[in-house]
């Protein structure tokens, strides 16, 4: 199967500290991967590296293209969508609809086309009632769902989800899981919630202090048993 993400011996240093240490990882098209690890293990850094927000050594190939410069990553962004951990960082437009169409407009769609896409998407996700709401007046759960809608509007091939279900109540969690399980895009999901990861993903890798302990968990039917409690704190 074609690899949509291929990291080869990638390391990231920040403030003299090795945040990612010689990480190699492959994600196939349509595959769903759980990324587990303790706080500060480097999970978000790994996702940020894939979209070019971190300077890294090693080889980063995304959607078959080797990316090293900002221009390279600019080319793949949108096709690889990154859901930020804090929805307040993601939503910056005055209204929900403006935020949802921001990505499609950057992809070159005309405003009317982007609006039509935004309307259809919000309707499909059951969020149409939020279309004219002011983004920073939304509840925490609504902000998360709208953030997800904003990245799905770019029709990505890969989703990088940084703790997408954090702080969601039962109702919003149900909507979020329903939306995510309907996606055909490949995805990497960072979460501390094992039942949710079990439901959404097929395999898992663990980050410990910047090291990826992959392989052992690949394709393991009972991978969840091998996750140490330490990794979830």
């Amino acid at each position: 199967m074609t690899a949509v993400i291929d990291l080869d011996h990638v390391s990231v240093t920040r403030g003299g500290r090795l945040v990612l240490d010689d990480v190699s990882l492959t994600l196939a098209a349509g595959e769903r991967l759980a990324l587990i690890g303790a706080n500060g293990a480097g999970k978000s850094t790994l996702l940020r590296t894939i979209v070019g927000l971190e300077k890294a050594s090693g080889t980063v190939a995304v959607l078959g293209e080797r990316c090293s410069s900002e221009a390279d990553f600019r080319h793949i962004r949108g096709r690889v969508a990154y859901l930020f951990q804090d929805p307040d960082d993601q939503l910056f437009c005055p209204t929900v609809m403006e935020d949802v169409i921001f990505g499609p407009l950057n992809q070159g769609l005309r405003r009317q086309e982007a609006l039509a896409l935004g309307h259809a998407l919000l309707r499909d996700l059951g969020l149409f009632h939020l279309a004219d709401r002011v983004t920073h007046h939304l509840s925490g759960g609504e902000k998360r769902l709208v953030s997800l809608a904003a990245i799905l509007a770019m029709r990505p091939q890969v989703l990088l989800l940084d703790e997408p279900t954090n702080t969601l109540d039962e109702s919003h969690l149900g909507i979020m899981l329903d939306i995510l399980s309907r996606q055909s895009a490949a995805m990497i999901v960072v979460s501390h919630d094992l039942p949710i990861l079990q439901r959404l993903t097929e395999r898992a890798v663990i980050l410990r202090d910047g090291h990826l302990t992959a392989g052992a968990l690949h394709r393991h039917p009972q991978w969840i048993d091998q996750v140490h409690l330490h990794d979830l704190r």
Binding site: L53, R77, G78, Y82, F84, F102, G103, N106, Q107, I151
Partner: peptide, 8 residues
Amino acid sequence: EAMRCRGF
């Protein structure tokens, strides 16, 4: 960064 990720 979030804006850049969406093509800004």
